[in-house]
Amino acid sequence: MAAAAAAGAGPEMVRGQVFDVGPRYTNLSYIGEGAYGMVCSAYDNVNKVRVAIKKISPFEHQTYCQRTLREIKILLRFRHENIIGINDIIRAPTIEQMKDVYIVQDLMETDLYKLLKTQHLSNDHICYFLYQILRGLKYIHSANVLHRDLKPSNLLLNTTCDLKICDFGLARVADPDHDHTGFLTEYVATRWYRAPEIMLNSKGYTKSIDIWSVGCILAEMLSNRPIFPGKHYLDQLNHILGILGSPSQEDLNCIINLKARNYLLSLPHKNKVPWNRLFPNADSKALDLLDKMLTFNPHKRIEVEQALAHPYLEQYYDPSDEPIAEAPFKFDMELDDLPKEKLKELIFEETARFQPGYRS
């Protein structure tokens, strides 16, 4: 834990890192770190609560700039109880001085990944967590956004079992017609939660990839272990087919990539493993919904509104309290091709509203 900075004593240090967030945020305490930044909790002297502050230093890398800009653009436009918001952003007053960006968010005690390492969940908890994931996802999908990296560590939890989806750095506007060349190379989302079509096709992607990830998360809540822990690309596919069985001819016809289709045709026939054999203690309604989410063919996979209306979630289902976005989200430009200098300018502009004396 960093010592509390005395008023006016300059930035606090946390594990050798400068955290320049005073005077409003003090009493910093280390939480963890990701690929390009550290997260601390801090005391907000204005709202009198502890908050989470993520320090991001992305400006050396085009990919990190892209992810940072995506996350900020999306989260500043989203407003939903099951999606983490941005409360404040701290950065230098000029673009030349801006080396880091500090993002202030609600402090959540833990995440689903940490929880599943230590606790076996009751059916009631599984049901409530799944409902909140789908409630947040309904809003995301209504904005025409794909999260693309749903996994237990991106689901934040607090002691009252509130759940918030975080990390929109890989999110995209849904565009089933656009052929994202190089899709697989830039697709760094965790393999275990990846839909089979991501490994088999490169053309376009749809909201059904997020539903697949939610199915993987439900299976993990039922058993405290990942359902498809593939060691590499082909191993991942083999794990999936080992449980779902061989795809039907109709399902194979959806695979545009001939090499991928021929690979699947070359494999020995596998039978589907019954879900109640894998999860003998699970609620039968939970397994019915799991089956509809972990469907090989993305066109037959359940959609988020149908999933919310499934009998497993009937005690929570309330369409009048499951809000959607006001308007579909649009990125003005494809960020993939922009140089990091341009992305830095866009991050600077996007964060201006939090600067003292800002006038829109």
Rank of each mutant, 00 (worst) to 15 (best):
C127E: 07
V21M: 02
L264Y: 08
N238F: 03
S122A: 12
N281S: 07
V145S: 12
N27S: 08
A6Y: 15
D149V: 00
D291Y: 00
P280D: 11
L137I: 12
N47R: 04
R135A: 11
A92M: 15
R194W: 04
R148E: 02
V104Y: 06
P229H: 00
L155E: 06
S153H: 11
T206A: 05
G37E: 00
T160F: 07
L170Y: 04
T110C: 07
Y187A: 08
I211S: 04
P247K: 04
S223Y: 00
G22A: 08
I255G: 12
N297K: 02
I31T: 15
I324N: 05
M38P: 02
V18D: 00
V18Y: 14
L287G: 06
I74M: 10
N154L: 01
G16L: 07
L155D: 05
F348R: 10
G204Y: 09
A195K: 05
L294T: 07
V49L: 04
V18T: 15
N123M: 12
D337Y: 00
H141N: 00
I126E: 01
I53H: 12
P274K: 11
F279W: 12
N45Y: 02
W212D: 02
M293S: 09
P268F: 12
T190L: 02
G10Q: 08
T110V: 08
L218S: 01
A195Q: 03
S142F: 13
A219T: 01
L343V: 14
Q249K: 00
E334Y: 10
E12R: 05
H239G: 04
N87G: 13
Y205K: 01
P152N: 08
D332H: 10
K55V: 05
F279L: 00
L287K: 12
P226E: 02
G357Y: 15
E334D: 00
S246P: 15
G22D: 12
T351H: 14
K300V: 11
H299R: 07
A42L: 13
D149S: 09
L170R: 06
L338Q: 00
E81R: 11
D332N: 01
I198Q: 06
T351C: 12
C216P: 02
N276G: 09
D149N: 02
D100K: 13
T185S: 00
E186Q: 11
I347P: 04
T159L: 05
I95N: 00
L200S: 02
K292R: 02
I209M: 04
A282F: 15
H141E: 10
N281H: 07
K259C: 05
I86W: 05
S213I: 02
Y233H: 00
S360M: 03
Y139C: 03
W192K: 03
Y64E: 10
F19E: 04
G136C: 07
A286K: 12
I255R: 06
A325F: 15
T206S: 00
Y358F: 01
L290D: 02
G357K: 08
I227M: 12
T181V: 10
Y358G: 11
G357L: 08
D332G: 02
A327R: 12
L335S: 10
A7D: 05
A5M: 09
T160M: 11
K300S: 09
L157T: 09
T110Q: 06
N257T: 01
K231W: 14
Y316W: 15
S360V: 08
H178Q: 02
S202H: 07
W212N: 02
C161A: 10
I56T: 12
C40F: 04
A309R: 11
D162L: 13
A4P: 15
K54H: 09
L116E: 06
H147Y: 05
N297V: 08
A35F: 10
Y358I: 02
K73L: 01
D337A: 03
L163I: 14
A5L: 04
L218N: 03
R91G: 14
G245S: 02
L150C: 10
L294N: 04
L163E: 08
I133S: 09
T190G: 01
T63V: 14
Q306K: 11
P328G: 10
A260I: 14
D283E: 00
S320E: 09
A9W: 15
N158S: 00
T94H: 09
A260W: 06
A7H: 10
P196L: 01
D235C: 11
Q249N: 14
T351V: 10
P356Q: 14
L28F: 04
Q62F: 06
E250S: 14
H61P: 05
P58N: 15
I103W: 04
A219E: 00
E109Y: 11
S360L: 01
A282W: 14
Y205Q: 03
P268I: 10
T26E: 07
G34Y: 07
C161Y: 01
G22S: 15
P93Q: 00
H178I: 08
H125V: 05
G230H: 13
L267K: 14
E326A: 02
D44T: 13
N238C: 07
K138F: 12
L343G: 09
P176M: 08
Y263M: 07
T26Q: 08
E303I: 15
K344Y: 09
E349D: 00
L218R: 04
N123W: 07
Q97D: 08
D124Q: 10
D88M: 15
L163T: 10
H310V: 07
S213V: 04
L130R: 03
D337W: 15
V46A: 12
I31A: 15
A325T: 02
F78K: 09
G182P: 03
L234S: 06
P176S: 02
K231D: 12
V39D: 05
P176I: 06
K231I: 12
L244T: 14
S246I: 03
N47A: 06
K73M: 02
L222N: 08
L313S: 04
E349S: 15
P152C: 09
Y233I: 01
K99I: 13
S122E: 08
A286T: 02
K114S: 05
H80T: 13
K138G: 08
N27C: 12
M333L: 00
I243K: 15
I89N: 03
P280C: 06
N238A: 10
Y128C: 05
A5C: 07
N297P: 09
L163Q: 00
E197F: 02
F19P: 02
F129G: 12
Y358D: 08
V188K: 02
L184A: 01
T190E: 02
K292S: 11
I240P: 04
G204K: 06
D337V: 02
K340D: 02
N253M: 05
Y139M: 07
F331S: 09
I209E: 01
T351I: 09
T185D: 02
R70D: 08
T160L: 10
L265G: 12
E326C: 12
G169D: 02
A352K: 09
L346C: 10
L244Q: 02
G357Q: 08
C166A: 14
H232I: 11
Q66D: 04
K164F: 07
Q105Y: 07
P268D: 13
P311F: 11
L289V: 13
F168G: 08
I89L: 12
Y193L: 01
W212A: 03
A2S: 06
G245Q: 01
G242T: 15
L343F: 13
I86C: 15
K48N: 00
E197A: 02
N87P: 12
N253W: 09
S202T: 02
L218F: 05
I72D: 05
L264E: 07
E345S: 14
S360Q: 02
K231F: 07
L222G: 01
G357R: 12
Y358R: 08
R91W: 14
Q249F: 11
I103H: 06
A42P: 07
P176Q: 00
S213C: 01
G34N: 07
N27K: 01
D321A: 01
P319H: 08
C65T: 12
D175T: 09
L155T: 14
K259T: 06
N154P: 06
P323F: 15
I209T: 05
W275D: 01
A195P: 03
E197Y: 02
N271V: 11
I103M: 08
G215R: 00
D124T: 12
V46S: 12
K344Q: 14
A260N: 10
D88P: 09
Q105T: 13
E197L: 02
Y317W: 15
T295C: 10
G37D: 03
Q132E: 08
Q17A: 09
M38C: 12
P93N: 13
L146E: 06
R359P: 10
P176E: 02
S57D: 11
A282K: 14
D162R: 13
R70I: 08
G215N: 02
I211K: 01
H178E: 04
D111H: 08
K330W: 15
S320C: 12
H80A: 12
F183Y: 00
R67L: 11
H232W: 07
K73R: 06
